[in-house]
Design a protein around this nucleic acid. Sequence first.
RNA 1: GCGCCCGUAGCUCAGCUGGAUAGAGCAGCGGAUUUCUAAUCCGCCGGUCGGGGGUUCGAAUCCCUCCGGGCGUACCA
Length: 655
Amino acid sequence: MNFLSELRARLSQALTGLVDDPAPYVGMLKPAQDAKFGDFQANCAMSLKGVLNKPPRDIATLIVSRLSLDDLCEPPEIAGPGFINFRLKTDQIATATQQLIRDDRLGVAPVTEPRTYVVDFSGPNVAKPMHVGHLRSTVIGHALDKILRFLGHTVISDNHVGDWGTQFGMIIYGYKHFRDDAAYQADPVRELARLYRLVNQLGDYHTLGTELPALEASVTTATRTLELAQATATKKPEDKDLARAARKAQNDLKSAQDELASAQKKRQAVENDPALKSLADAHPQIAELARAETAKLHAGDAENQTLWDQFIPQCLAELQKMYARFDLKFDHTLGESHFNPLLAGVVEDLLQRGIATESDGAICVFVDGFAAPFIIRKANGAYTYATTDLATVQYRVKEWQADVILYVVDARQSEHFQQLFATCRKIGFDTVDMRHVSFGTVLGEDNRAFKTRSGDTIGLESLLDEAIDHARIIVRKNIDGKVHGADLSASEIDEIAKVVGIGGIIYADLHHNRDSDYVFSWEKMLAKTGDTATYIQYAYARAQGIFNKQSIDINSLRCQSQNIHISRLEERTLALQLIGFQSALLDVVTDYRPHYLTQYLFKLANDFATFYEECPVLKEADAGIRQSRLLLCDLTARILKKGLELLGIEVREIM
RNA sequence: GCGCCCGUAGCUCAGCUGGAUAGAGCAGCGGAUUUCUAAUCCGCCGGUCGGGGGUUCGAAUCCCUCCGGGCGUACCA
């Protein structure tokens, strides 16, 4: 029984005849924002004031008189300006809770109209080790993938890895000129990553060298602009525009100085290292030559293709190790390279249909509202990720019959996606619903985005390792501090530490609204109290502990006894939360926001903890109440476990 | 310049298809433990929702404007 939709249906009946279209008013019936107002509230009477020309409280009275819900609710109460408050009958809650006991789906009915979703997430560059910047896409995408599947949709997860771009030219160049064979034998991916960083660093060294005078000039210009602006502003202190211009000049100067300083720092890093310096001197054209290696690869050069064929499986295998730690498996890993054969056709088609035009030598789609064009072929003939993305959409629609494509990608790429979607509409892909599920940036301690190419980003591998190490210390301390703690072996402790550490990282990310930026911090990632994975995992372990204590057979319990007795407020609150699991999942899916599920689970764990304090289970003398409470524990544990699983987080029975 | 996003308690954030006294967690303070695992529970403290105007019976939420911050902005992905 979904009480919300049932109540809305009843309200709709009551409004029929009063208003032309009850739908918008029915939507104003919502879960109560505060438990003291009951379980649900209808806010439509105030809005109907202008429609029915009556005072809202009179309208509320009228609506209540037309409502028939004696079977579900206590008599509705009218409060404040005209709120209608509903309180469910407790036996109705009990009945609804009972229905979950033998329901494998825990009250979550499969959707009546399943759709085919392609979820595009993670998408790292295979040439480089994954770092914290890849965490959000991976974790959010994984959660959406699992939740959509559980709701009964057809989901195709696709890891659109970067395996064909500029960075591969760098690796190939590095491999040809700088490789350390012993290191490559020992750990090929590690050596390739080193080569990538090296080529990138040397390339930057030269590029920045040519840019340095311009950067210095812009600092000089910005300084003069600032002096002028300040002088003008001082003469007319009352002029706000002048003051603003002065502030802007100040900021511009600071940006110019920062940019120069950063360039100088990168130059210095090379100059201070004789070995690097001599490599840099020996390869003055490195950036250009690396780009040429990419071009050769794309043109079908045999040597580069062979190298690529050799590198790719190793890189993908390395990625799999990371995904295994998240227990994540993709249905497909169709990287950029997979779409290479389609790119020429895409451009040709758009040109022929007049959707794309040539501009400054590049083939572009001009999208209304965007100053910059959507470039699908560069002046030098190379394709861009715009081209690849267009080909990918075509593929997903034709081969997979996608109804919806979700792109779980950084918010900074939103313009790209708007242009991509607009271009797809021009092409005529109007049946597929494409959504950029964007998310905020992971920031460093300095409140600036992690730079993909800076050496000091934290690798995902070491992030997970460190989280587990931290967790192990805390797990040990907790176990040792228990009065009635279980004796756990070192390997059992390791298992718990793994689940707590990785779960903590996943949860720390997911519990934010995905739009928010967040500052990366060990403290937050590994917090063990409050609104964290650990808290929820612990609630699960406590519930399981009750069953383990007396070796209760849960299966037979579920079969024999199916009466939920609700006599205490804590039981009522817990039961009401239990029957809201479906609703929480549907909330996630309406706007692809997993944090609604973390909020639900935290509230459930908290309701359970309160219940656990106040309502004895095993010590309860009344056998019926004891059975009922055992069932509540069982349902809580099942929903916590399932909910966490949908977020990619595991549980352990003993913590 | 143009475009997008953000500004809510000391800190980290929810809430933003308008609804009742703005909610959580952390930190701080005070209680609860011969425990069904205290990785817990209960209570207290804490906010001009960046400022100002407007729409409305009602605005953190919608509109305008200003301030402050971030990001993007033609051949990287």
